[in-house]
Design a protein around this nucleic acid. Sequence first.
DNA 1: CGACATCTTGATGCGGCTCAAGGCCGGTGG
DNA 2: CCACCGGCCTTGAGCCGCATCAAGATGTCG
Lengths: 237, 237
Amino acid sequence: MVWQYDRSAGQRGSLGRCARCATRPVCLSADLKDDALRRLPQLMAKSGSLQTGAHLYRAGDRADAHYYVCSGSFKTYTASVEGDERITGFYIPGEVLSCTLGDDGRLDGAVALEPATACRLNHDDVLALNSVGCLSHFFQKQTERETKLLDHQLILSSPSAQARFVGFCLQYSDRLLALGRRSDILPTPMSRTDIANYLGMTLESLSRVTSRFSKVGLIHSSRTHIELLDSDTLRTI
Amino acid sequence: MVWQYDRSAGQRGSLGRCARCATRPVCLSADLKDDALRRLPQLMAKSGSLQTGAHLYRAGDRADAHYYVCSGSFKTYTASVEGDERITGFYIPGEVLSCTLGDDGRLDGAVALEPATACRLNHDDVLALNSVGCLSHFFQKQTERETKLLDHQLILSSPSAQARFVGFCLQYSDRLLALGRRSDILPTPMSRTDIANYLGMTLESLSRVTSRFSKVGLIHSSRTHIELLDSDTLRTI
DNA sequence: CGACATCTTGATGCGGCTCAAGGCCGGTGG
DNA sequence: CCACCGGCCTTGAGCCGCATCAAGATGTCG
């Protein structure tokens, strides 16, 4: 994995990498101007393009940085002692992966679901954000991350498979909306197996739920997308 | 709720409130000395004693602070739209409650499970921790909090009620150990209903699991405690 | 076109939810 | 001090939903 700072920002009149980034409106750089905008990419290194299935980090790595998804998407997983994996989250641009520590390094691993990039912020550089003027954004992002985890908790504590699936769709939909994308079409670069695992159910149960919802016209489900046809009705479940 | 800073620290040769606090070894003040130890209680306000059932904060309050449990214990809950509550966590001394934001204020509420106290750190004062020398402790605590949330996720994603209960016991046990208390006796100031809710199962299912485990001698369960008699066997489940 | 992964659909059994009744304990009042 | 009451927890019976096992359908890539 190649990581690269943007030392050139400010030279040749350029505002730097962040100014040109499509994800900027939902990233740390959102409200920055001029000088600050130029200095941020000097604090945060951007990854080269990760291919599908490539690890952003692995369980056991030193956990000394936060990662902001710039393009593409990631999943995180932890392996329990018995060897079975648990998908703990999906991440789309603007969201942050970080800080899941065990006694020796990270507890979870992060894998690209499609060609993706991310920006790295070392823990040691967090305070430097203050001088750039986006430390409050940083805290905001951490809060959003925590809210996302709690949402997942709520989804998992639903008793029925149907309710968990609906929770997943609506949460995902809201996140796409925050990103400024269509909220009625959910791209699914992850496999059904991953979604089922994330929702704490079996592949078959998930398939039955999607089939049932498709039949009654609530959703249209294909391999690559889930389309919400009637999100109002979904929201009542 | 009465909140009080310790402005007197440093006067009369006193090292201040934190120096005398029983929870200090697992709190922000853990490694502080002299000056720093005196200044911390000037940044963090301590609550008066909260009675059982009293709210530390409520859903809808402005979320502008972190709360460190000083004595006693708390539970947090969120109310879903349909009015049914979900217990999202239990907190013992040294653990931090914070930052669950909705569009307007907090999403969750926090209630004392027994007479309890907590210390408040305003979001605006987080940076001031740097000059006291315990900002890294603060980040450490945030990380621990996140790990705790992920643990809960893993517990909830277990398919069987039995496995979820074991997960609860072992996680609780580890937290007591970190606090320097006995790890084989789990105090249960919360009701069975709360535990069952937290574990995403019914009261009856929880009761059946505890009965079964009691019969085979794995635990001894009373109204106020759960005693782990064979945590090695439990750990294999 | 064939081989493999991925997803769907079907049949069956078990676990946990629901509803209901009974025990345990602390509190209150006579 | 005891009788009664009301939470809280336990235990039981029946049923539904999901996991499991198994086979078939669909899609993908060499």
